[in-house]
Design a protein around this nucleic acid. Structure first.
Lengths: 147, 147
DNA sequence: TTGAAACTTAAAGTTCACTTGAATGATCGC
DNA sequence: GCGATCATTCAAGTGAACTTTAAGTTTCAA
């Protein structure tokens, strides 16, 4: 199966202009062209786009993703380098997930806080309340001094 | 305890210029000034900065965070609005975490893929191998057609 | 009291990741 | 073959989030 840039855009949930931009930046060197000069996307290109999306979500810039694509172009010589890259991504992602879990805890605490404030009709009333034990840890992280 | 912008910058692991920028954008309306016109940060301001950091990490823009700070300024009138905001942040964060967990799965698969390629000395060799069962699901998500 | 370090503002500059516009060309259904 | 729709390139524009610069002020230690 082959796809146009517009079809691939829909499949990826991206504007077609973004996919063209990625191509211009050298992120899609394997996309072929039709006789008329149009991009021809194949299943492998969808996979590449999915990997690009993944790398972006793990915090890589376009430039860094380009560096990875250049490794792919170099072939088997760059296998170890690519392994190192993904191992680093794994570390970064695990840190990011731990961090976001803390943020979720804080958001849950804020939900409790404002739900309690809503019931009481004021914020001042919440500050007199006992903080539920599950939020004590995260609340402590917001405090700077013990004074 | 009180802090200068530079001290607060170190505590927050941010450049001082960023904190001044946040202040200029109206994100820190509660920070007082010394007689000489310098910013005086207190423990409550650290907490505000931590909440700003959290909201940023959950995907809010500076403008949206400003809107939240404006709610805080309005006082008890905006409690319900603020509750809605944090409930929405909770939903967004849970989606984001689910998404990043998928990314982590993909990255783990890529680690397996390149580790196997490294051992075999070529990518071609990996493609003949059986994919470990824990990666079959994520590998399937990279495929577009069944052909 | 004096000099360095850290602060102040306002304005301009930077980077990133797109996005848009204009002019042109290809493909497809009828 | 014609018109609608979608594609092409290149260049310029956009918006967000800072960052830097410059000129000046405050604080503090010696």
């Amino acid at each position: 199966m082959v796809y146009t840039v517009g079809e691939m855009a829909k499949l990826m949930n991206l504007p077609a202009s973004t996919i063209r931009y990625y191509d211009n930046e050298g992120l899609l060197p394997f996309v072929e062209r039709s006789d008329g000069g149009r991009r021809v996307f194949r299943d492998a290109d969808y996979e590449t786009l999915k990997v690009i999306e993944c790398l972006k979500k793990t915090g890589l810039s376009i430039r860094e993703i380009k560096a990875f694509i250049d490794m792919v172009k170099r072939g088997d010589d760059s296998i170890e380098e690519r392994l190192e890259l993904f191992l680093a991504r794994k570390e970064a992602l695990e840190r990011q997930l731990a961090d976001l879990n803390d943020m979720l805890e804080l958001v849950r605490f804020k939900c409790w806080y404002y739900e309690t404030a809503k019931e009481a009709g004021s914020e001042a009333a919440v500050k007199k309340k006992e903080i539920p034990p599950e939020f004590k840890k995260i609340k402590a992280k917001l405090r700077l001094s013990k004074a």
